[in-house]
Nucleic acid binder design. Structure first.
Lengths: 224, 224
DNA sequence: TCGATCGCTATACATGCGAGTAGCGTCCTA
DNA sequence: TAGGACGCTACTCGCATGTATAGCGATCGA
C-alpha cells in the first residue's frame, strides 16, 4: 500500500487501480477505464486475470485483507466507532468506500463484509456487556446485526446521496460523515429516543403471549 | 392502483410494469423486459415516452405520489415505524421496495425521497418532543436526518443482502424485516446502548472548546 | 549467443443496449 | 363512408462493453 505505484508490477497496479475505480465510480466501471488509470492497455486485464469477474474477486479479497490488517494494527474501539469501526486514514478511507459500495451493490462480497463485521461486533459486544459498558439485550445477535445494518446503512445512504465520490481524499469524505453523525449517534446511544418504556413493554408482553419464546427471533436469518 | 391491468391504457400498463420491474430487478432492467412484462412491444416505450429516462421519471413521480396518498389515508404512526413510516400492504410494499432501490442507486430520485421523509419526520419529531414522547435533541434536524438515514439504510442493507426480491408478495418481505428489526429498535430507542454518559459528555465538552458553537453541525449539508 | 518465457499492446470479434424509422391496423369523426 | 389521427409492432442502426487472438520486445537462463 505504501509502495510507490511505479514500483508495482502491472498486475498489482491493475488491481489497485481497479479498487480505486470501483470505489469511486462503482463496479460497472469499464475495463478500459481501469486500464487507463493503471497506465496500461485494456487487454492486459484479460492477460492477467482472464475475466473481469476474477479481477473483481481479487479486489474484494485484497480489500478485506487490508481492512483486517489495518484494524488489527490499530485496535481502536473509540466510542463513536463502536459499531462501525473504521480507520479514518487515507488508506482506510478508500477501503471503507469500497466496502460500502460492495454492500450497496449486494452480492456475495457485500454479504461477506457484513458477516465479518457482525462477527467482530458480536465478540466485542458480548465482552462490553460483561464489562458493564453496554446495556444487555434480550437477543444479542439480533441487536448486533441490526446495529451493523443501521451503521453501515446510514453511511451507504449518505454516500448514495452524492452523485460521485472524489477520487482522492476519501479520508476527508469520511471525516465529514463522522462529524455529521457523531452527535446524533452519541445522543441515541446514551439517552435513547423514547421517554417512556411503554412501547417496548407492550411489544414484550405481546410477544410473550405468542408461541415464539425468544422474542425477536422471527426472520432472524433473513440476511443470510 | 386497484384498476385491473387489462383496463389500463398501454401507457399506464407500461408505467406500472416498469415500476414493478425496477423494484424487483433494479433500474438497469431493459426496455424489452419491461415491455414484455406489460405485454407490449419494446418500441412502444419510445412511442409514449421518447426515452427510457422519461419513463423512469414518470415512475419516480408516480411512486412518490402514491406513497404520499397511501400515507395520508392511513395516518399510522405506530411506534415501530416512527422513523420509517411505511405501509405494509401489498401496494405499499412495492412502493417501499421501489423507494429503497432509488435510494440505493443514488441520484436525484433517491434524494427527493429521503428529503421528503426527513421533512415529514422532522415535523413529527418536533411535535413529539413537545408532547413529551421523545427525548429532545441538541440538534433536532441533524438527529432526524441521521435517524432516517439509519432506518432506511438498515432496510437497504438488509434487502441488498438478498440477490433478488420476489416479484410478488413484497408485503411478506417487509413483514419479515419488521419482525427482525422490531426488538432491537425498541430496545435501542427505549434503553439506549451505553450504560454511562461519559462518551456523550466527553464529546460535548470537547465540542464546546472549539469555535463551532452548535455541536454536530459540521458537514450538516453533506447530503444535499 | 540462442531461445524461450513473460509482460504487454493492438486489433478484431460477439453481444446487448437504447434509440430511430417505416408501416400496419383500428377507432373516432366529419 | 371516407379520412386521418392514434396505438402499436417489426426492423434497423450506432455504440459501448467484455472477450478473444496475434504479435511485439525485453529479460533471463543454458
Amino acid at each position: 500500500m505504501s509502495t510507490a505505484r511505479e514500483d508495482l508490477t502491472g498486475r498489482a497496479r491493475l488491481r489497485d487501480a481497479a479498487i480505486e475505480c470501483f470505489a469511486a465510480h462503482g463496479f460497472d466501471e469499464s475495463l478500459r477505464a481501469i486500464a487507463a488509470r493503471a497506465g496500461v492497455s485494456a487487454g492486459l486485464v484479460r492477460h492477467h486475470f482472464g475475466a473481469k469477474e476474477a479481477l473483481r474477486a481479487e479486489c474484494d479479497a485484497t480489500v478485506l485483507a487490508r481492512y483486517r490488517a489495518l484494524k488489527n494494527e490499530s485496535l481502536n474501539t473509540s466510542p463513536q466507532q463502536l459499531f462501525a469501526q473504521f480507520p479514518s486514514s487515507r488508506d482506510g478511507g478508500i477501503l471503507l468506500v469500497y466496502i460500502l459500495r460492495s454492500v450497496r451493490e449486494g452480492g456475495d462480497a457485500g454479504k461477506d463484509f457484513i458477516d465479518h463485521m457482525v462477527a467482530e461486533a458480536l465478540e466485542f459486544s458480548r465482552d462490553a456487556v460483561e464489562r458493564g459498558i453496554l446495556v444487555p439485550s434480550r437477543n444479542e445477535e439480533a441487536r448486533v446485526r441490526f446495529l451493523i445494518q443501521q451503521s453501515i446503512g446510514a453511511m451507504v445512504v449518505s454516500f448514495a446521496m452524492h452523485p460521485e465520490l472524489p477520487l482522492d481524499d476519501f479520508g476527508a469524505v469520511m471525516d465529514r460523515y463522522y462529524a455529521e453523525a457523531m452527535l446524533p449517534t452519541l445522543e441515541l446511544y446514551t439517552e435513547g429516543l423514547f421517554t417512556s418504556r411503554e412501547y417496548l413493554d407492550e411489544y414484550l408482553s405481546f410477544m410473550a403471549g405468542t408461541k415464539n419464546p425468544p422474542a425477536g427471533r422471527a426472520g432472524e436469518n433473513m440476511t443470510r
